[in-house]
Design a protein around this nucleic acid. Structure first.
Lengths: 244, 244
DNA sequence: CGTAGTTACGTACAGCGTACGTAGTGGAGT
DNA sequence: ACTCCACTACGTACGCTGTACGTAACTACG
């Protein structure tokens, strides 16, 4: 394979050397480009991330970007890796796997809040980027005190991240909608609740009406999130006790 | 507001009357258009769904589609509602909420397998389409025997659907990648495993290496899925027993 | 020291969502 | 019965996208 230009076969971008032996010294680095793309996505949303826009932000010609990033999908991979780098791991786990995993989950949510486009890019395809590997290694370390087999640990991590992604997506969807819509959030909200009220008034969905009207008052997002994570961990802890 | 043309305010498509009082009889229906879009997405992937393509499939001019569907996002909403219509609900729940919810989850997974683009469109924005309401109403009915408050029931449904979406996304990502990539699945797989092996051979990620090499043999997707759902249900059942 | 491989980047193409304008249709109000 | 105008249908056009391809400059290796 060649270090740039069209690849001769399917390639993971991380397998490409960043600098080829021959030719002029590249004017930019992957890290620079990733940072530029993240900047654009944070400021203008994921749809604002186009090759032209990122190239401009990086300070190079549009097509020069393709020397660093063969396909747009690879740019996404760089972006995810760049934000996964924001995790801060202690020198060693505390020994309390539950607390350590919960802290990890809080960090995941924090990253997604800082970079609302992350949930949309979540995919197993990005599971082997350098920083994802760092994350995975630490998570496995933190789980050493958890008495279940390796497969179950992997399943636990997958479920935690799945739940977090789903939860934060819901959390952010209103905000993201507001960013895109030409109307004010109040107008949007008003239109939706008006519609729902009209539907429920029809009486065709009595259980739903009851559930939505006599809903509980507790809506603190942090609490809902913590509760969700706790429930997932509960399930696996029970399994560990059963197994040992 | 007017029934077609640019809306005068933010609108849910379901609040628009399908047929206006005045003017010529529309040549197509929402159902027809949704079916056409679903056909295209099933055959060519979600990226194949363009307004032009769907219009052609429906048999009308590109811009005529905008009489039925003001924005592309609304087309997505029609598509999701169309596949949510595939749920088959019994006349009444069995009384065993666990079994009923599990059956519902299996149906969700089935729908996502038949329409691999569904996970990408999962969003709370689609939670109030007519068929989503039918789903929600039945699910609440099925949970009448579960002794937790309404808020918890909503959280359970959200978590189940989140976990299913994440799980099926993982399940499908390889297939979807194969559909898009110009290389054979074997080539893709070979490139990825070669890369991972090289990384793990470096010794920087010992726990990960151990986990991946001495992984368990049980990989039956149906089992992994059932186990995940069961664990979620376990957590909530425990909570119900604690509460009552 | 040539030369092959790399970097840089402009041009060009096919496709996208959709704003806008025009023509024709048919139900509601007089 | 007749008029009016909201509505349907649809062609054209604009600005945007990802990226294939060609060209020119540069540098490390044989």
């Amino acid at each position: 394979m060649t270090a740039s230009g069209r690849p001769s076969g399917p390639e993971v971008i991380w397998a490409r050397p960043e600098r080829a032996g021959r030719g002029p010294r590249p004017a930019h680095t992957r890290a620079e480009i990733a940072a530029a793309a993240v900047r654009v996505a944070d400021a203008e949303g994921l749809d604002g991330v186009s090759m032209r826009r990122v190239a401009a932000e990086t300070g190079c010609g549009t097509m020069s970007l393709y020397n660093y990033v063969p396909r747009k999908e690879d740019l996404y991979e760089l972006m995810v890796d760049a934000v996964v780098a924001e995790y801060e791991f202690p020198d060693a786990p505390s020994g309390d796997w539950r607390a350590d995993l919960k802290a990890l989950c809080r960090q995941t949510r924090g990253i997604m809040h800082r970079h609302p486009w992350v949930p949309r890019l979540m995919s197993p395809a990005h599971g082997f980027s350098p920083n994802a590997l760092r994350y995975f290694e630490y998570a496995l370390w933190a789980m050493e005190g958890l008495d279940v087999d390796n497969g179950t640990k992997v399943e636990l991590l997958a479920m935690l991240n799945g739940v977090i992604t789903a939860y934060v997506s819901n959390e952010l969807s209103t905000a993201e909608r507001a960013r895109t819509s030409p109307y004010s959030p109040e107008q949007e909200q008003a239109a939706r609740t008006a519609y729902i009220m009209r539907v429920l008034a029809g009486g065709a969905y009595p259980r739903m009406a009851k559930t939505l009207t006599e809903g509980p008052g507790r809506f603190d997002p942090d609490e809902v999130f913590a509760r969700a994570i706790d429930r997932v961990l509960d399930g696996f802890e029970a399994e560990s006790r059963r197994g040992s």
